[in-house]
């Protein structure tokens, strides 16, 4: 657990040379007999990647994350882990903060370590480190109900960070927040990632969010859920707020929107 990954190594261009962290290989997922949540999904994730899964509701984004998290098993194909440590320390953030209301902030963050039998005292440095990273150390004794939506989400992120994960899965973590809070958390997320050097798979249905955050955008379509295409965002990290107003940003957003429109079109004649 002590070993922490250094910041994302080479530029994305050298991607092919980097080792794999995890891959979905021709994964199908059916629910019941005829709900095809995912069809033939292939996805390679390398250390340091920030991959966004972008697509309309019902295209299987959450299903893909749940497959990676091991909560469900593929009907066909497989999820191949190349980094056992990443699997062991996996961090997950859901759309809702999903905190235990009866526990204080620091008890909530302690949970993943507690489940591994780490005592509170032994976990304290890691708990405080995670809370410092999300800027909530002051609130460690507060109960979730005393926090705003954005703060709750930060606690949820701190809980995902407390195992010092190499890979974090995030399922529309900021979808329920107002835009101002969301922008702020987007910036903070990139900052955290630069500091911790972890890999992120990020589900969103916002084109703008995916372009701002990720270096790879995987565009998906629904019925059946499938990958339509993948776009790269060449802008290097660290990305500042200025990127949001740059012409590059607008170009990337346009490209992603067009790809997404195609994805929706495909769906339109099915339904």
């Amino acid at each position: 657990m002590a070993a922490r990954l250094s910041a994302p190594a080479a530029a994305p261009a050298a991607g092919a040379a980097r080792p794999l962290l995890l891959a979905l290989e021709h994964v199908d997922k059916l629910f019941g007999r005829d709900v095809v949540a995912l069809r033939d999904m292939t996805l390679e994730v390398r250390p340091g990647d920030f991959v966004s899964l972008l697509g309309p509701s019902g295209c299987g984004k959450s299903t893909a994350l749940r497959l990676i998290a091991g909560l469900i098993q593929p009907t066909r194909g497989r999820v191949r882990w190349e980094d056992a440590q990443a699997r062991e320390t996996l961090g997950v953030v859901f759309q809702e903060p999903t905190l235990m209301p009866w526990a204080t902030v620091s008890e909530n963050v302690w949970l993943p370590l507690r489940l591994r039998g780490v005592s509170r005292r032994a976990a304290l440095p890691q708990i405080e480190e995670a809370l410092t990273t999300v800027g909530l150390l002051r609130f460690r004794h507060a109960y979730p109900r005393e926090l705003s939506g954005g703060m709750k989400m930060r606690v949820s992120i701190a809980r995902a960070l407390v195992t010092r994960p190499r890979l974090i899965l995030m399922d529309e973590p900021f979808a329920a927040l107002d835009e101002i809070t969301r922008f702020k958390l987007n910036n903070d997320l990139l900052e955290m990632r630069a500091k911790l050097g972890c890999t992120v798979i990020f589900v969103t249905h916002s084109v703008f969010e995916s372009v701002f955050l990720s270096d790879r955008i995987v565009i998906m379509a629904a019925r059946p859920g499938r990958v339509i295409r993948e776009l790269g965002v060449s802008e290097p990290y660290p990305r500042s707020e200025a990127f949001r107003t740059s012409t590059d940003y607008v170009d990337h957003c346009r490209a992603a929107s067009e790809a997404l429109a195609q994805a929706m079109e495909g769906t339109a004649h099915d339904g």
Binding site: R66, A69, G70, L71, L90, V92, F94, E96, T98, M100, L111, P112, R114, L115, R116
Partner: peptide, 19 residues
């Protein structure tokens, strides 16, 4: 979601009950 979280962190039956 909390139940999923327990599963992801491989909580035992007893841990899930207790926590």
């Amino acid at each position: 979601n909390l139940r999923d979280l327990m599963a992801i962190y491989r909580a035992s039956r007893w841990q899930r009950l207790r926590y």
